[in-house]
Amino acid sequence: MNATTDKTWEHAGLGLFITLGGLLLLLTIAAGTGIGEMSISIETTFAAMTNKIGWSAVALNPIQESVIWDYRLSRALVGACCGAGLAVSGAVLQSLLRNPLAEPYVLGISAGASTGAVSIIILGVGVGTVTLSAGAFVGAFVAFAFVALLSHGARGGASKTILAGVAASQLFNALTSYVVTTSGNAQQTRDVMFWLLGSFGGVRWPEFQLILIVVVIGFLICMYFASALDAFAFGDDAAASLGIPVNIVRIALFATTALMTATIVSMVGSIGFVGLVVPHGARFIVGHNHIRLLPTCMVAGGIFMVLADITSRVVLPQQVLPIGVVTALVGVPAFSIILYRAKSTT
């Protein structure tokens, strides 16, 4: 086949793929809105949405309408954004650190956020979800700064950064355990556990606005550096010899992923596995080129998270599983299949 038509086909294929993925994401979000504890018919769900947008004025049960619009739709949209942000962050960090095990929490962000949030819950500094999120956010950035300083002091290098991240995670997890065991009562400990495993309970429209802005801006910054990320495949010197300002790109992308992850963690807790698994799955489908990989991660991460959230709500009657439990339970088998198939095809 002629190489130019090859490239054109690739572009057309990518456009089609992203469009299909986007439609699938919309369908998943619609499913996330329709499915739940209170069974609401598809017609009602649809009418509730068009009512709110202003396309229709069907008289509905106000409780059902409110559940659809204020509770489920905002929750599904936040879930999609979180999944997208975590998957994009994971893909970026795996390429930047040249390590397939890298994920958004590798820089100690989740551990730091936990320490921040737990301090707020247990030490009772301030009240309400706003201060809780703020505490988590501050904790996340303290941990990130710690890792950045430590790996910079150790004269850079991808493996040094990962080691610094491991050290930070251990430190902040230990601090969290310390605070919980010395000052927590049983109820607080249970709250903390639930938060550590992640939960979409309590997210509404204001959260969606914030997370949408953060994830979209983060994604655009990562896309700006897409070809720089390609250049990192053969190491820092190879990237530098291609004219990439290695240190600037690394700092910009670390900061971007840290900001996205910290916002997500402070909002919904630390949801594991999405940032690790989705990029590998996406690479298996579209290859390593970041201009294709990052949009795919965005869409696939969103779908994965909304599906995981639906599962967490329906698998046990009268009960919501922590989302982190579901992402791992669904993610590990999916990951195993990818690993196995990737091995047999290369």
Binding site: A228, D230, A233, G235, L242, H288
Partner: peptide, 23 residues
Amino acid sequence: LVEQQATTEANVRVRDVVSLGRI
């Protein structure tokens, strides 16, 4: 610059590696 035995974990395609030269 062609480095000594530069390799990668990523299973990139030959054309993609050569395309890096256009960055």
